[in-house]
Design a protein around this nucleic acid. Sequence first.
DNA 1: ATCTCCCGCCATATG
DNA 2: CATATGGCGGGAGAT
Length: 838
Amino acid sequence: LGAQENHSSEPHRSVLKTPLKQAATSHSVLMELQPDCQPLTTPPKPKEILPADPWTPTSNLKMLMSAASPEIRSREQRRELSNNPREEHLSGDEYEKSQPSRKEKSLGLLCHKFLARYPDYPSTAENNYICLDEVAEELNVERRRIYDIVNVLESLHMVSRLAKNRYAWHGRHNLPKTLQALKKAGEENKYTQQIQMIKKREYEHEFDFDGERNEEMARSFGSNEHSEMSFVELPGMEFRAASVNSRKDKSLRVMSQKFVMLFLVSTPQLVSLEVAAKILIGEDQLEDLDKSKFKTKIRRLYDIANVLSSLELIKKVHVTEERGRKPAFKWTGPEVLPNIQGTKLETTSTTSPPTISESIPSKEQCSKNLFPSRGKQNFTRHPSLIKLVKSIENDRRKIQSAPTSPVKISTSTDQNISAFPSQMAQVPVIAKHQLEGQSRKAKEMNMKLSRSALDCNLSLPEVVLKPQPPRPAAPSDQPALPQPLGVCPPSHGPVSPVILPQTHSGVSYAIYLHPSPAHTVTTYSPSFMLQPLPCTNVTGIKSINSKVVNKITTEEGDNQISTDDPTKSLTAKERPNIKSETSSQRCLKRSSALQENTLIKRCRSDEESLDTALTFFPSGYLIPLTQCTHGNNAGFSDEEKAGICSLQHTTYSSPIAGVIPMTASELKAVNIPAFHITPFNIMLSPTSIAAAPVLSSSSLNSGNTGSAPNPSSSVLNFTLQHVGLIPAGVQVPANPVLQHLPVSSQPENVSHSSENVNLQEEKVSKNRLQLLDRGGLRGWEPCVPKEPQVPQAATENFFRTPGGPNTGPSLSANSDGTNRTFQGTLYIPQRKLEVSED
DNA sequence: ATCTCCCGCCATATG
DNA sequence: CATATGGCGGGAGAT
């Protein structure tokens, strides 16, 4: 067999390929891969490539997992035939059998084979070069296919191009940073909002609306972002970089990054193909929904998804809505950390002037490209241009021409700014990398831990809430799947309870914040601490989704999730070092004690939770948000929530209701971008608030920023609550992150920053309130539940808050009535969504 | 029929 | 100019 060697890239005939396969037993391809493969593939060929151990333990697992399902189908069993050593004589049938079969030639499988060749975490020492020719040959595929894989890997910075036929393999070392950068980029791009918009639009679509809605949307976002960003780079990466950086559009790469961003900013980290395609297309222009274009986009997304699936970053699932089942993907990769460093990443930690680089090819890594649009225009190639062109012409996107398109630029609004300021960010990132080494999970944990304090804090805040959108419209899509709890960061085991609120579905929670100006806290200090309130206050709410099923179960998820329980949390993974707890942590701990009640199982991704569906509120805790103020609010964007909302709500259609009377203006003032509230919310009694004790707030960052303390924010919260806009619990979150923000104020902008903060727990982030500005609100109309009704259960969900806090952990949603502590109930409409993994 | 998505033509970019 | 890249969409296998 050594034969093949030469290089024709052509795959050709089955003949050659046969060899490998045969080995496999009937079922699993996987099997092939792993055990066999290695030997097979590697052996003859060049060695260097696979330096050390191509197979890491993890990789094996992956393989297995991934492979498993499909394999089954192997009914064919051509295997046997092939098994026989040579296929010399094949009859027609046999011949066919020997044929690979479409599945065997799938990009996902090919990608597995490709990945199997390299270690997830290659030692720096080695030079892991990838020679495209060789790989193609060894894997028996056309070169074209390799490009598909490599391009996606490149988007994640798992490989980088060195030269013409060569790429350098970096493995997953950069993944954390990359994801962080992508998340940030996604936030800055307001993807969450875009997602919501799209869903909303769909929803409306169903009903009559339509019409102008689009415009509305556009405007609302209008401002919008969009804008694309070009390829997001990491700082450290490209060392050698070699000559090239082809600056072209790199569409597949960019598309891949954007796709990933969608997951990272979505609360239920679930993205349907349809929505992704629309966003990716539409960034530029919302309008033309060209059908063919849409189809093409979908095709590409499948290609990308296959690679990401092989990397185990996402998993295919189906979301069942009323309309039927739609393909979607769920993020199964590591949680992204908050960022801290993130900031740095962008700009490069050093000071490099980001934008400018423009022409500068290579070099600098990082940031250069990020968000060109925003800052002003920057580079020539900006996609935006392209768009224009397209519009004009059609296809030829190529136009690279000019430097930015003016148009787009305009669109972009604010956000950008905030981003840069990152001055503070300097915090040392630290350890993160180490984390990486381990299993992802572990990693996650570690990270958090390391930062412990921070994280904790962050997480907490997040907890805060998620407001629900007014139901009205939105529902259309979102599945609300529960978010996987997984999100929750393990690390805080203790703390986590607090988080509960987030609950998986997008229920909202309320939490009290503490208004006080606080500030001061030093940096990391946990910005928010929670304190247990004695009672009443809180209430949890939650809607349940009745059936939502999500099984997010994957192993990983569990881990994360587990955190909730103190016990669990610690368990396996690492419990992180608790070691240094910061004060914050301590706080947490205390809280944890409380937790008992509070806790909930939320996390568990599992179903169980579903069943219970309830979430509890941690009542009693306050969360100080201080910082939030800064614009963070904007952060809310959370489209997510929207998604959440969508969940099952059925019941009500309350139209309008969703909208809250608030004046938009007021809200805005606050900076809160959007928020949706359900009628219930309104109800809150102010008192409740009062009850809540305040916490000491710690403001995080305050230190560095100097940002103003946020009194305002606190005020805001207060105000809102009193007003009724926000359920008592809710609060505007402040993110530590915010800090960066310069004072900016613009509400809008703010948003992203906040997100960053949140950590991994994405979940947390999700829960936030959002406020819409007027425009925004408008958007949300009362929706009627599309679905006729959901079973009651679903409807029931809404919860109101229960009052009694107490009940320990469990509050059922239903219960309520009682206390009102929480008066503000949120209602979340839920739509039923089911996710089925396939 | 719909969902996936492989295949490979062919325009471009690079060398 | 020869290759290396990679956009794109037809159309077929999988469900």
